[in-house]
């Protein structure tokens, strides 16, 4: 019988939307699903986790050292708590990617990164080569399975549950060699890129940060999140946390509108699971048209404001 521990990601008392998707993957493994909240005081976050369908128990591990999500501090606690579980799953975010291997190495198990499909308790699909190949991996049945979950591959589990919340205590000596200094967060009223139903992205062809205004205008009209290609980020038009692609964020919105984005392989790797892709580009030969459901060839500076006016 499987027993899966999901490691919660949270900030400012709010559970990350990534956890409902991680729980969805955990539920497909079967058996019990516990969510662990490591925090200074995890009560508020635990209450949110308890509502996710499929969760059978929420554990809070309160410690003043958990005021920032530092992998070096969290890993020894996760290692202790993992005892008695068959699986430990992390969201495939920078939080999970940073922490999971640190836990896996301590427990001497190979990690499965970016789980995109659960075949059984020991067999999973994961993408390699920027999603240009999918491999099926088999974990040894006798060993703990540690993995990160590719968020774009799972629908968020529903709410409405009321799983019991318990305080857990772990005994682990925590290092002091890693200290949080600061976080420069992009505050935005727009939907978060990774959970937005609609996303509008701009590329190099926008040519400046000022010109990105037409992207924001369309996004606001559609109540969409805003993304960008690597080229737009590298050119300094928008901050790095807006990058969509293999090395940025992997997203799966219902509607993705790519504006002035040629469609490099590494960008396409980030949008493969979008339900509908729209491309607006002046180059009819751009690779983005190979994957777009709807394309329109022309000058984005006239087409985008027109689209904003008509939706």
């Amino acid at each position: 019988m499987s027993k899966t521990l999901v490691i919660a990601e949270h900030a400012d008392g709010k559970l990350s939307a990534a956890i409902s998707k991680t729980v969805a993957a955990a539920s497909q493994i079967g058996g019990e699903v516990h969510v662990a909240v490591f925090a200074v005081d995890g009560a508020a976050v635990a209450a949110q986790a308890a509502q996710i369908a499929g969760v059978t128990k929420v554990l809070t591990v309160n410690n003043a050292a958990n005021n920032h999500a530092l992998a070096a501090t969290l890993a020894p606690q996760v290692v202790e708590l993992a005892k008695g579980y068959s699986h430990v799953l992390f969201p495939g975010t920078t939080f999970g990617k940073d922490l999971a291997p640190r836990v896996a190495a301590k427990l001497d198990v190979q990690q499965i990164s970016d789980i995109m499909h659960v075949h059984s308790a020991t067999s999973f699909d994961r993408p390699i080569y920027a999603g240009n190949a999918i491999c099926t991996v088999e974990a040894p049945a006798s060993q703990l399975v540690i993995g990160t979950v590719r968020l774009a591959s799972f629908q968020a589990a529903a709410g409405g549950n009321s799983a019991p919340v318990e305080a857990a205590s772990v005994t682990a000596s925590l290092p002091t060699h890693t200290r949080f200094v600061s976080l420069a967060a992009q505050k935005s009223e727009r939907p978060e890129l990774q959970s937005a139903n609609r996303v509008v992205s701009g590329g190099r062809a926008l040519a400046s940060s000022e010109n990105f205004k037409i992207i924001y205008d369309l996004a606001d009209k559609l109540k969409a999140g805003v993304g960008a290609s690597r080229a737009a980020v590298d050119s300094g038009y928008v901050p790095n946390d807006m990058q969509v692609g293999q090395t940025g964020k992997i997203i799966a919105p219902e509607l993705y509108i790519a504006i002035g984005i040629s469609g490099a392989i590494q960008h396409l790797a980030g949008i493969k699971d979008a339900r509908t892709i729209v491309a607006i580009n002046k180059d009819s030969e751009a690779p983005i048209f190979e994957v777009a459901d709807f394309g329109i060839v022309g000058d984005l500076f006239t087409l985008v404001p027109e689209l904003t006016g008509k939706v």
Binding site: Q110, N132, A133, T136, P140, F289, V291, F294, I296, K310
Partner: peptide, 27 residues
């Protein structure tokens, strides 16, 4: 350590090419 066994490698499902429209109204 022994670790994970890759049992199969497959090509990802292909997205089919869509249609190109002429005007914003059509889109």
């Amino acid at each position: 350590g022994a670790g994970l066994k890759i049992t199969k490698t497959a090509a990802p499902p292909k997205r089919s090419k869509g249609i190109v429209v002429k005007t914003v109204d059509e889109l």
